[in-house]
């Protein structure tokens, strides 16, 4: 299990990186944290001619919160996101998701840009970015553009970046006060890849009922499904004990789940229901310091 030979390029600056990308196009594969890419290289499932190492680019290593946006550089590593005071204050869901990825050592190296562009259907950050309607800031020698992640994510392992584009930053809208975000990740075994996951953003009305509701589900190797208008029927619903299960049941019923190698559709559906129930229950639960 040794990788095939490749040419190695270390990006010295953002401009250098953009030039390399413009020259090499699709054959210049970005090496960020490498925690997903290098296993593929070691297994010889991927053999790019050129690797462009961006680990030392300080221009991609930033965390800011301004103008209602949390801006995270593409090279910021999971562990830093999980522990960064700005992320924890403005976007606890993102910090929490980062803290649950893989193992401790993986989180020290893995990056948010790498995770989002890999677009693994069961990964944590794609789920969070979908839920929050995050925007990716993309750069190339041709200029910069900002694209909602929901639009970039075409299908699992397939993000609509141009051949010469790289991710500079991720912009997460800072949730408004009163918006609760919760996530539930289900693993078949500790440390393994998630089998299914659910994240929810919910704003309660004055009675403690549902004012706004967005849910994202990842299961069965599908592109994570964003449910928004599909849940309009629950808006205005009161905070009764059966509400989480009702929402979860609705969600599971409309997902186009199929049997996978890991689990049959019936099981995936049950796990999705469970994850959604737990998320919505937590999002509706009164919290200390907040009006009931």
């Amino acid at each position: 299990m040794k990788p095939a030979p490749f040419a190695y390029h270390r990006a010295q600056s953002l401009d250098h990186l953009l030039r390399l990308k413009a020259d090499l196009r699709g054959d210049g594969v970005i090496l960020a944290g490498g925690q997903s890419l290098v296993p593929m290289l070691n297994l010889r499932l991927s053999r790019p001619g050129n690797l462009i190492d961006i680990n030392d680019l300080v221009e991609l290593d930033h965390v800011h919160a301004r103008d209602g946006m949390l801006r995270i550089g593409a090279m910021v590593r999971h562990h830093r996101i999980a522990t960064h005071p700005l992320v924890r204050r403005h976007h606890p869901l993102v910090a929490g998701m980062a803290s649950m990825i893989g193992y401790h050592a993986i989180r020290q190296r893995g990056t948010i840009g790498g995770s989002l562009t890999l677009a693994d259907p069961s990964a944590h950050f794609p789920l969070a970015a979908m839920l929050c309607d995050a925007t990716l800031v993309l750069r190339s020698t041709r200029g910069e553009r900002s694209v909602p992640y929901r639009a970039l994510y075409l299908s699992p392992l397939n993000c609509a970046l141009e051949d010469d584009e790289i991710v500079r930053s991720v912009l997460f809208p800072i949730p408004p006060p009163g918006c609760r975000m919760e996530a539930e990740i289900f693993h078949l075994n500790h440390g393994g890849f998630p089998l299914a996951a659910c994240a929810v953003a919910l704003t309660a009305d004055a009675r403690g009922g549902v004012a706004t509701l967005t849910l994202v589900i990842a299961a069965g190797g599908l592109r994570p499904v964003v449910l928004d208008r599909e849940l309009d029927g629950f808006l205005g619903a009161g905070p009764d004990a059966g509400l989480p299960a009702a929402i979860a049941g609705h969600v599971a019923a409309i997902l186009p789940l199929e049997d996978t190698a890991k689990a049959p559709a019936a099981y995936l559906s049950a796990v999705v229901r469970r994850c959604a129930t737990l998320c919505v229950t937590r999002a509706l639960a009164p919290r200390a310091g907040e009006p009931a």
């Binding site: 290098v38 296993p39 070691n42 690797l51 190492d53 562990h79 401790h104 050592a105 993986i106 020290q108």
Partner: peptide, 10 residues
């Protein structure tokens, strides 16, 4: 000073 997998690093 941070843990990393040497097998996932060139």
């Amino acid at each position: 000073d941070r843990p990393a997998r040497a097998c996932l690093t060139f």
